[in-house]
Simulated scan of single mutants.
Amino acid sequence: MPKPRRSNDWGFPRWRGYEATRDAATVRLCDRHGCEEVGNCPAPKAPNSPERWMFCQTHAAEYNRKWDYFEGLDKAEKEARTKTEQTENAGYAEAQHYGWGGSGDGSRSGDEMRALEVLELDADAEFAAVKKAFRSKAKEVHPDVKPGDADAAAEFQKYSLAYEVLKSAEERREWKG
């Protein structure tokens, strides 16, 4: 008669571990050369490719930091893809009251991201960089520098509005802080 095995259940099936056996689990290592961490974060090898790199969390963040989903698309194609994805993901719009439903990197709203784009700054730009970019761009198109130029006045207004959006957001962060 075989000897009974000890159970991992302890009488409660939900207490069982993810690996139901005591055997060694197969773990995939990070695809980054020289890294010995567990590679459980997929990262695309190329745009629109099903092939994926498997990185640890640190290397996946490093790899995806500069990833541009819209790379190589002109403005019309970019808008069409954005519109398509918004209609396909309409069910997720319900979560907007949690602050993650809108566009952005999670810490900034869609308006802030558009304002940063107007000032040609990265999504993680500090407010000091925002102020510096606004001042340099505003000096070029200020109505006192280019009097009577309607295009320059419109550009100045656009830069001013972008700065105001980012300034009010920064004040809200300091107030909550």
Rank of each mutant, 00 (worst) to 15 (best):
L121V: 05
G101L: 08
L73K: 12
S136Y: 01
G39M: 06
R108G: 03
V141A: 03
K45C: 07
P143Q: 12
K176N: 10
S136H: 03
A125T: 05
V118E: 07
K176H: 09
A123P: 02
Y69K: 09
A60N: 06
N8Y: 13
Y92A: 08
L119N: 00
S49E: 13
Y92V: 05
K158H: 11
R135S: 06
M54V: 06
L116G: 02
D149Q: 14
H142Q: 04
L116W: 00
P147L: 07
P42I: 10
H142E: 03
R6A: 13
V141Q: 00
S160C: 01
L161P: 00
A20F: 09
M113V: 08
G17H: 11
A25G: 09
T87I: 11
F134K: 00
D68N: 15
K158W: 02
L119G: 01
R16K: 14
D111E: 14
C35M: 12
P50F: 04
A169I: 02
L73P: 01
T87L: 13
K66L: 06
D111I: 00
D74S: 07
F55H: 04
A162N: 04
A46S: 14
D149M: 09
A61S: 10
Y159K: 00
Y159M: 00
L29C: 12
E120D: 07
K78Q: 12
Y159H: 02
C41H: 07
P42E: 08
Y63T: 07
A115Q: 02
E94G: 07
K146D: 03
K75M: 12
Y63N: 07
N8H: 13
E126F: 03
A153H: 05
A138K: 00
R114C: 02
Q86P: 02
E174D: 07
G102H: 06
D149R: 10
W100P: 02
A46T: 12
A24W: 08
R22M: 15
R5T: 13
E140R: 09
R16P: 04
E62K: 14
R6D: 14
K3H: 11
R65M: 04
G91T: 01
R22E: 15
R173Y: 04
P50E: 06
R65F: 05
W15N: 15
A61R: 12
D124M: 05
R6F: 12
S107A: 08
Y163G: 00
L119S: 01
E155T: 00
T87D: 12
G91E: 04
S103L: 11
N89R: 07
E171T: 15
V27A: 06
E62G: 05
H59K: 05
E117C: 06
K137R: 11
Y163W: 09
P4G: 05
A93T: 08
T58C: 09
K83P: 02
E140Q: 11
A152C: 11
K66S: 11
L119H: 00
R5D: 10
T21K: 13
A76F: 10
A138P: 00
E88R: 13
K139N: 12
Q57T: 12
A154Q: 14
K83F: 03
K131R: 15
Y163E: 00
D105N: 15
V130M: 04
D9S: 13
P143Y: 03
G104N: 06
E51Q: 14
E19H: 11
F127S: 02
E171K: 15
A76H: 10
R6K: 15
K132I: 02
E164Q: 12
N8C: 13
